[in-house]
């Protein structure tokens, strides 16, 4: 009787796998994508589909050029996920070539030049988005008027040619509105009273963030992400915001406003929790998250960009090796 002897302990496995984790995250973005589409129109869906396909094709090309097998990498879902996360960060109307450039930077530069899945130092989606923020700030700042949504023809036209009737793109996100308003020496109560924030979609953004939280809770339930990073970011941002807000509520947005304006919760649950570019130990994850929260606040308050989440993530990516080093668990017997 001959035996199979090619199996090593442990013989049991939890059956979790990378592709399943990526699918979970893709699935979890569904509520927030839907609400974004509902709020800003077809452009969001177009961005998502185009960015996901772009990233997937670039992944295939990069694997081919690097002489790697296409499988299992093309079906692990990580490349389309990068695309989706990138698209969620973009303005609802973005010309296709910008998305292509961002995808190129995300997949080829941030991911494959570092060795592909598992080896990238930076969050690929945020690296791609940062390139657009720095290189094409005007495009990144143009958000459609909330009232101008859902015309498929106009959306497609803008997507293909990057031009539109000027007034269609005079909109702003709440974070833009706050930054511009404060620069013009208006106070927050004034901005609230005169309807600036309302026009910028303050109420809609609360719903967008709530949808993101719903997706995040799903991921927590599935144990695809752990609570430490989201908790860290929320604490870091809320704490920094609270200190300033208690100091002077007129010019400092409340912690609540900070947490529900812009895509904060998308960042909290989908971006900051990227396993590859974040810290690994539970304590490390808390510190990493708190760092992102605090830096987001700093950039939003004093930086040139209305939202600093992408830069905060990239900066904390840099700190990960250090965090990992100093949050190593104590070996058994070394604690007394």
């Amino acid at each position: 009787m001959s035996l199979l002897s090619n199996s090593r302990a442990p013989h049991q496995h939890s059956q979790r796998n990378v592709a399943q984790m990526m699918r979970d995250v893709l699935l979890a973005t569904f509520p927030v994508s839907t609400i974004l589409c509902w709020t800003y129109g077809w452009g969001v869906l177009l961005n998502i589909l185009f960015a996901a396909s772009c990233c997937w094709l670039l992944e295939a090309a990069a694997l081919k050029i690097r002489g790697r097998r296409l499988q299992p990498w093309l079906t692990d879902g990580s490349a389309p996920l990068t695309g989706v996360l990138l698209a969620l960060a973009l303005p609802p109307l973005t010309p296709w070539w910008l998305i292509a450039i961002a995808s190129l930077f995300a997949i080829v530069f941030a991911k494959h030049l570092y060795g592909g899945l598992g080896y990238n130092l930076f969050n690929p989606a945020m690296a791609g988005y940062a390139v657009l923020l720095i290189s094409f700030p005007a495009y990144m700042a143009w958000w459609p008027e909330l009232s101008a949504r859902s015309n498929i023809n106009d959306t497609l036209h803008y997507f293909l040619y990057g031009t539109a009737a000027a007034d269609a793109l005079s909109g702003a996100t709440p974070l833009d509105a706050i930054q511009t308003g404060l620069k013009q020496m208006q106070t927050l109560p004034e901005l609230l009273a005169n309807g600036t924030l309302e026009t910028a979609g303050n109420a809609q953004w609360v719903w967008i963030n709530l949808a993101a939280i719903a997706g995040g809770l799903f991921l927590l339930m599935r144990r695809t992400i752990t609570w430490q990073i989201p908790a860290g970011v929320i604490l870091g941002l809320a704490l920094s915001a609270s200190i300033a807000w208690i100091g002077d509520a007129a010019v400092n947005p409340s912690p609540w406003l900070q947490l529900v304006s812009g895509g904060t919760m998308i960042g909290v649950f989908f971006i900051a929790t990227d396993p590859v570019s974040s810290a690994s130990s539970p304590q490390g994850k808390l510190i990493y998250g708190a760092g992102i929260g605090a830096l987001t606040y700093v950039i939003r308050t004093w930086g040139a960009y209305p939202d600093g989440f992408a830069f905060a993530v990239l900066l904390m990516n840099l700190a990960v090796p250090l965090i990992d080093r100093y949050t190593r668990p104590k070996l058994y017997g070394q604690v007394q």
Binding site: S7, H13, Q15, R16, N17, V18, M21, P72, D76, G115, G116, L117, G118, Y119, T226, P275, V276, S277, S278, A279, S280, S281, P282, G284, K285, D324, R328, P329, K330, L331, Y332, Q334, V335
Partner: peptide, 23 residues
Amino acid sequence: PAPEEMPCIRCGDCVPVCPAGIN
């Protein structure tokens, strides 16, 4: 069997389960 081997994606799931305190 365990899934086909992929590179470590640094998820950190192995850290809290280790009874020897290893990362």
